[in-house]
Design a protein around this nucleic acid. Structure first.
Lengths: 306, 306
DNA sequence: CAACGTTACGCTCTTCGTAAAGATG
DNA sequence: CATCTTTACGAAGAGCGTAACGTTG
């Protein structure tokens, strides 16, 4: 059994059982891939792939299991390489962050700025998506780290660390009647058309939960994942905005006014998550601590070891 | 990076940094091992082992991490081989059980008998030890399966499945005064010298806990891990025995009489445990179910996936 | 000097790529 | 017949073992 063979079967499976494209992706010859897969199957004494004549048509039952194991092995290989880089070129490398718009725009900037000053040779990538996409990016290894509030704490392959708590505000254009509602209640809010975040994954969104638990039906006219999009439509008079406090800046958002609604909605917690089986490079620990100072190396490690 | 290199560094570490004995254990030449380790270190750009001149004197910090990853990779290799065997020679192989004396002698025999009838070509090995040793044997991969009551449910690398509950009895030679104590209480029991199991691991032993929680000091004159040893000393008049009900057989143990004490001590649960990251061969599932009929394949898998 | 690790070197087996052949839809 | 996989074969390369050398305690 060779590591190369693991790479081959993994890539063939990834490329929808097309050996030729797998060979291309691996920068090697197609017959070589074919051969090695045969040798592996011979060594194990079983078929990993179903074949109809010469075409690969599916993955056998043991093949499914073996592919899972191959994946884990290849992940360890990457981890070992990371250890090498971490100890020899500790300030070089890359860091891919998957997060939602609101975090990327309103919460991460100071941490990112400090990070690139400390590690100018680390290539930073920020991928944006909804919470479910963020979670999957981390789980698939497309991102090293994920930051989101919903969904991310419920994936078994990830370790999620509580990062900070936040709450919401209602924003409306100056002079809007909701601004005179003192104090604002859930009932009153429900009488206005609301623009807010994508409810995302059913059940995990605390805004929806609060309305449901009180038996109140909100009038949500538009949802978006992007706080700026929400504010834009609020400025156009489409409704009142319900968004994260951190996304409202009285100076920049001159045309709008905000009301704190943390008495109506419970705090939400944003999590930072990494794959449990990923080796974390030194600068990754630093980045985490820049976002959440209480998460030092020891705190992260203890969360990982559970 | 090659799988062989992983084997080499792993074995060298295991052999106390002696390259020669590692080479011997791996049935290869010593210079080959030396060379491959150097190549690996060169590829990773770091030292895995500390060297003073030509001697290996220790494991570096990154080396520790890499060895852990290498171990996991090698485990996956074994798993893949197991899958191969499982699907091609499903009724051949070996099964190593680690358990305590009481289980091995009084609880396992019917399951073992049924198993060897169903799988005559599976090599069965039973290793005996105290609960901590059993746990370690499974964790180290020396045993495929561990069966014990104490300790085994608290190891993070293992998945422990509740197997069955049992309780204790007090045994004494015919005519012993304790046999007239109706009903027997903890206080009364404490007035007699007691022979019972090794208390084993502090805190996890419910007998000790019960005495402590009531503030009663038992007079334990002798402990052993072996029920038969306990009975032997009880027959000699050293004290009364406190042992698992399943270990007392009125026919075989003619010289002794038993009193049920399940009103005094809470039930204990025996667990069956496997490494979470081990591939389980088909016959292993069968064996588990022979011991605990409620643990079918689905139940085991769901416990593993947590 | 005994035990151990590294270097040197030749042999063997493996692997890889090209070219050709066979199968599939 | 275009696409894809397997077979065949020769060249390049990696790994292994023996022997010799260098270190360490």
């Amino acid at each position: 059994m060779k590591l190369h063979q693991m790479r081959y079967i993994h890539e063939v499976a990834r490329q929808n059982l097309n050996v030729s494209s797998a060979a291309e992706a691996l920068h090697t010859s197609q017959p070589g891939v074919s051969k090695q897969i045969q040798l592996l199957e011979e060594e194990l004494g079983l078929q990993i792939f179903h074949r109809s004549g010469k075409r690969l048509t599916g993955i056998t039952e043991p093949g499914q299991i073996i592919l899972g194991m191959a994946k884990r092995m290849l992940r360890e290989v990457e981890n070992i390489k990371s250890v090498g880089d971490d100890f020899t070129r500790e300030s070089e490398g890359s860091l891919t962050i998957a997060t939602t718009h609101t975090q990327a725009r309103y919460r991460l900037p100071p941490a990112v700025k400090a990070f690139i000053e400390k590690y100018p040779s680390v290539q930073l990538h920020i991928h944006q998506g909804n919470p479910l996409q963020v979670t999957e990016m981390v789980a698939n290894g497309e991102a090293d780290i994920g930051i989101a509030t919903e969904a991310i704490a419920n994936h078994s392959a990830l370790a999620a660390l509580p990062c900070y708590a936040w709450n919401r505000c209602v924003v409306a254009p100056h002079g809007h009647p909701i601004l005179n509602e003192q104090p604002l209640t859930l009932q009153k809010l429900a009488t206005y058309p609301v623009v807010t975040y994508d409810l995302g994954i059913a059940g995990s969104n605390s805004v929806r939960q609060v309305f449901e638990s009180k038996g109140i039906q909100p009038n949500i006219v538009l949802t978006a994942i992007d706080s700026d999009v929400i504010k834009t439509y609020v400025e156009m008079g489409l409704g009142v905005g319900l968004l994260a406090q951190m996304a409202f800046d009285p100076v920049r958002d001159r045309g709008l006014e905000a009301i704190d609604v943390s008495n109506i909605f419970p705090d939400s917690t944003t999590y930072i998550a990494v794959r449990k089986d990923n080796y974390l490079r030194g600068y990754l620990y630093d980045f985490i601590q820049l976002i959440a100072p209480h998460l030092d190396r020891a705190a992260v490690n203890s969360a990982l070891s559970v």
